[in-house]
Amino acid sequence: MANGTARILVVDDDPYILMSLEFLMKKSGFDVLVARNGTEALQLINEHRPDVVLLDIMMPDVDGYEICTYIRQQAALAATKVVFLSAKSGDADIRKGLELGASLYITKPFSTRKLVSQIKELVDAA
């Protein structure tokens, strides 16, 4: 898949983090969608079938774990990759995220450069 056509959904309820991620992904040449909460995220996932979802866990309506579980249950979304981006940094949290079928679990705060290269790798591998 060419970089230019990969579609990425960024989900986070913190406006500044969302703003940073949107900027970073756009600059990396992805087709970027943003969602400020879980409900918006689910809607966009169903409408646009993104290739990668950057997913926060703690959100006021539907949490990231539930969204990930939903994605893994849909046959149509089998190709969609999930990357958790969370302040929850406990071993148990990370294990849970990966068990739910996420490709990566990145803890906040993160290095922007490393994040961008990891996402690029993930997209290229597909």
């Binding site: 913190d14 500044y16 983090i17 991620l21 302040a87 803890t107 993160f110 922007t112």
Partner: peptide
């Protein structure tokens, strides 16, 4: 755990935005 967790969210923005400004 909770305190560090609470600190992480603003730190994330600060770091990400600083790096963006720098890069």
């Amino acid at each position: 755990y909770t305190v560090t967790h609470e600190l992480r969210t603003p730190l994330t923005s600060v770091r990400a935005l600083s790096e963006i400004l720098h890069d």
